[in-house]
Design a protein around this nucleic acid. Sequence first.
DNA 1: GAGTGGTCTAGACCACCCG
DNA 2: GGGTGGTCTAGACCACTCG
Lengths: 243, 243
Amino acid sequence: MRVELTTTSGLPRYVQIRESLRAEIAQGIFKPGQKLLSEDELASQYGVSRMTVRQALTDLIDAGIVYRRHGVGTFVSQAHVERDHTKLTNFFEDAEAEGIIARATVLMGEVIPAKRQVAIALNLEEGEPVIRIKTLRFANDVPVTVHDAHIPCKSFPNLLKKNFERTHIWTHMEDYGYRVKRAVQKIEARDADEEMAQLLGIEIGGPILYKERTVYAEDGTPVEFTYCYNRGDTYSLTTVLSR
Amino acid sequence: MRVELTTTSGLPRYVQIRESLRAEIAQGIFKPGQKLLSEDELASQYGVSRMTVRQALTDLIDAGIVYRRHGVGTFVSQAHVERDHTKLTNFFEDAEAEGIIARATVLMGEVIPAKRQVAIALNLEEGEPVIRIKTLRFANDVPVTVHDAHIPCKSFPNLLKKNFERTHIWTHMEDYGYRVKRAVQKIEARDADEEMAQLLGIEIGGPILYKERTVYAEDGTPVEFTYCYNRGDTYSLTTVLSR
DNA sequence: GAGTGGTCTAGACCACCCG
DNA sequence: GGGTGGTCTAGACCACTCG
């Protein structure tokens, strides 16, 4: 038997096979716990070589949709672990995906000498100039986050002239040839001090989800180090772990 | 030119190539930003086919050590983004890795009917019996976390008879044929109520890093749902994001 | 022993990027 | 145009699991 792949679409075959299998699982044609056809069988069904099938399956495994057991087979996972929250997305992208109106006001935009922690994170000498952009972000006009970003001056001349109220810093960074690729963030719980309480409209001592985040470009260059203060009562964060 | 691969070691060739490249990068033979040999060249150097080289490189890319640019080459990443914190590890493993003395005291061990949120997370009917194990965890004898775990009763009979003071729940789960594989957690900042303040030795209203976590076995079955209260002043959490 | 996934080959053509 | 990574083939043998 042979399943036709669209040849007109420019998509690679392994992508078409991956999406075909994903759809069949989503539609319940293959149910949780059930064994898929073997790689050999899939290859002959789709009229491709086994390596191509494996490429499609590997993507589905990474997505947590199926799992392999050596010598046994490939199986549909029980619970479809919800959508991947380890993706690096920005505030405006998130908001758009959830139908929330996003807006930011700039509290501060300046060039300052890098403090020790910022310098280390950005791989600069202490005191080298960094651009500091501090914004207050609103979701549906409710203040949710104070974002205090530090960016190496030398790589992004004239960055401060850009608009930050409706466009994310990362979007502007692409104009300078840097594509944001990964980030490492440290997360803590803190109490709101007077400044944060006032900006976020909560009481002093109220809960704040605090993050320190270093953002790296495609080639691993650190391009942003940010202190991030999120209102504890309206903000939560989801992460996925695996071993 | 040809580089000899150890043929005696049972390791797959792509693993040997991966580790060989990783070592060369660590030793500075290839420096950050530098282009590696092309896949064709590496293949002939190691005396393997190009697909095998690609398998080795793909692992290094996933680890953030190198990156590919279509039509250009494969390059060593600038900053070696620190060790991967998206790995699912348990309290005792973490502590051992960091040289901390870990200990837990059991506050509560009981079988109760599943409340709504627990039932949904564990894919049970509301009211089905679940094992609840509430522990207070100490790092170097300082209380850091209250851990309130819920586990489906039917899959883990007699689990409550096990020891939880020095052995993690997940270790016991392997006796029942379940290997923990992935988890999804929601993270929030909260204020300590009276109970948590007392248990963790902090003031009422002090910061708590609060997590709700669902843990899945290899096949995707949910095996644990936990409420986790971490002392804000001594606990932080690091995550890695990428796009 | 039969069936499965894990590894590997020796090529091929294409799409992309750069000078 | 030349070099690179992206995709793909049509096989092969091995390691693992199970009945």
